[in-house]
Nucleic acid binder design. Sequence first.
DNA 1: GGACGGTAGTTAGTTCTGAGAACTATCCTG
DNA 2: CAGGATAGTTCTCAGAACTAACTACCGTCC
Lengths: 157, 157
Amino acid sequence: MCVPSVASSVDVASLASRLRTGVWRLARRLRSEADVDLSPTLQAALGTLDRHGPMTPGAFARHEQIRKPTATRTIAALVERGLVERTPDPLDRRVSWLQLSSQGRRLLGRVRRRHDAFLAARLAALRPEELATLERAAGILERLTEGPGTPSEGPEG
Amino acid sequence: MCVPSVASSVDVASLASRLRTGVWRLARRLRSEADVDLSPTLQAALGTLDRHGPMTPGAFARHEQIRKPTATRTIAALVERGLVERTPDPLDRRVSWLQLSSQGRRLLGRVRRRHDAFLAARLAALRPEELATLERAAGILERLTEGPGTPSEGPEG
DNA sequence: GGACGGTAGTTAGTTCTGAGAACTATCCTG
DNA sequence: CAGGATAGTTCTCAGAACTAACTACCGTCC
């Protein structure tokens, strides 16, 4: 692999714009495809709550790597639609526990089927290994912004 | 590896979400590091106009895969800041041609240098293999989004 | 048991980016 | 010239992210 000594900073910059362009387009695309009356963000949130079990708003924020106010809003939207239920914690009354309602589970199932159709129709080229690459890339990106001088709330995580 | 079958698509939504927030945060970080008062979208637009030469608003919209109203606003913001100049087309008075002003070029240059500096520092901490992952991810995203069917308004071009 | 510092969440307000509908101006065609 | 297509613009709305400032609560310590 003849280490590309990071020096090639020009490539680096264009890499950043390529990623930005690609990611942005994908996000827009998914949004326009998502007619399930649930935005991609909410779909993702639903998926997170489904996969990673009941969690508190704070845990949710950390998991999604968003700030607490954003988590509040997202959760509120889901609860408002009856897709997520919150149960107060009997021991710590500051927190509550979030989990999918049965309605949320049903909708999530529908979304998944729909999305699979979308993938089949348009993105058939996305092989599991490519998905894995994207996953890894997401992780790397997240680490990339964490470094010194993270502008906010860093120490909490 | 050996990823379980069609990683069900909400994963794709979640993945897209993670990528989006990751890229967005990186972009904002770059913005603050570069000490340039230009949103990520505007920076990208500037780059597009620089790389792909003078173009009309419509061409710009198609290139960025955004709708015309969004293009209008983006362009207006750049023109307002004196970073882009518009020249009327002498033959077709509906259209105009957009290109960077010298000020825009200077600013873009500065932005690029600072981004390079920041990214070089950050990416130096990555292993070559991780860099390669990012490269590959960018490629996958490009393939994914440039292909079939701009979601709507497609037939126009 | 009451003051206190820290943690969890929420509210308020701002910014950025996108979309659709309806409109104007212009071009082209018959 | 009438009628339709094309290019852009304006207006209005929505989603999602952020920060700052707040409330409510916990645990501790005197």
